[in-house]
Design a protein around this nucleic acid. Structure first.
Lengths: 204, 204
DNA sequence: GTCTATAGAAGGATAGAC
DNA sequence: GTCTATCCTTCTATAGAC
């Protein structure tokens, strides 16, 4: 009954997450999702009507997961240096648990940018300004860091952590030649990035 | 005759580049490529046999285009500071002319990493070591820059320029709220990145 | 709620005329 | 070399029994 239904719907959803993450909307097959969930195709449509609707549910969930986590780290009330340290610690650990999530999201967003409008509301941006940009402005005014465009700084912060995951396939090929694993590379990165970023905006 | 054949094959190829770049292998439709080339589906198969083979030709060409340009900038015999300046000038200008190329390549590489083995040979890596890493090692030894992992530094360099393009759809949504266009954002970035990167590895 | 069987559409590929 | 017409597989979606 209710309990069993929950389980089936969940099994479908989890299988859909796995397949969509790996293959994307266009490349995913309903049959593969059904197989992975241990049920048949008809049940997918019973619970989610269409492939698109199933994908929407998956995308919505994963995008929320990612962005809430990301903004969550940046919203903390902490001095700049500590905020950077916390951000990379938390955020990269999150990415290590979900290594192909960035590639999936970036690709689907490029395909249909309107999908994320709901996550980048003006309220969300206002919050970002209050919790991050105002703080940076204060630090710059006090000469505690180099004056620079705050949005550029935010993108730098994110690029340095997210890009290696978005380019995981490429990076692994590159690292193969150096006899180092992706995980080792990321682990080292997690330690080095905070110092690097703080250094990059230091006034000498 | 020969001349006309060249033109048709070229029209197909160009149309295929446009459609595959936008939709990816799985999302692209032979019909759309044919329409864009101004011919019919049958001709696609006459020239390229299968969708896969057409895609292979497109991918091979675009990947070569991207990586040759990228490594080309880094191979120059120039002091570190000038190399960084040249790299961002050349490389970002290239990306501005091909803004959706990174997203396309990264996605297809994640889907089939073996496709790029041919571009990351041990010879190519050896060249990179000689032309970039050895130089960095020398600069570090002379205390002209902070000691750090050279591969990490290379990825930082690339992440900062490539990520905004790989995340173009997302970034545009974010910038919308700030009333700034993607192009303006990139133009500013092109000016600011060299100083930032050099600063980030400076010894104080 | 879950299954089997199948409809129906889409898309890749080919045959054959010109 | 190029076209029209069509085949055939794949995939989404539904009908209907249990």
């Amino acid at each position: 009954m209710k309990e069993q239904q929950k389980l089936t719907e969940e099994k479908i959803f989890d299988a859909a997450v796995a397949v969509f993450e790996e293959k994307g909307l266009a490349g995913a097959r309903m049959q593969e999702i059904a197989d992975k969930a241990g049920i048949n195709k008809a049940l997918l449509h019973y619970y989610y009507r269409t492939k698109e609707k199933l994908f929407d549910a998956v995308f919505e969930h994963m995008a929320g997961f990612m962005f809430n986590k990301l903004f969550g780290c940046l919203d903390q009330k902490l001095p700049w240096k500590e905020k950077v340290a916390l951000f990379y610690k938390e955020h990269i650990s999150f990415l290590q648990s979900h290594p192909i999530l960035p590639a999936f999201l970036l690709n689907e967003i490029n395909q249909h940018p309107e999908r994320i409008s709901r996550f980048f509301t003006s309220e969300r941006i206002t919050l970002l300004r209050q919790n991050l940009f105002d703080q940076l402005e204060e630090d710059m005014k006090q000469n505690r860091m180099m004056r620079m465009d705050k949005m550029q700084l935010l993108i730098n912060l994110i690029a340095l952590s997210v890009f290696p995951f978005a380019a995981k396939g490429l990076l692994e090929k590159l690292l193969e030649q150096e006899n180092i694993t992706f995980d080792e590379f990321i682990e080292k990165r997690k330690k080095e990035l905070p110092g690097l970023v703080i250094n990059s905006v230091k006034i000498r």
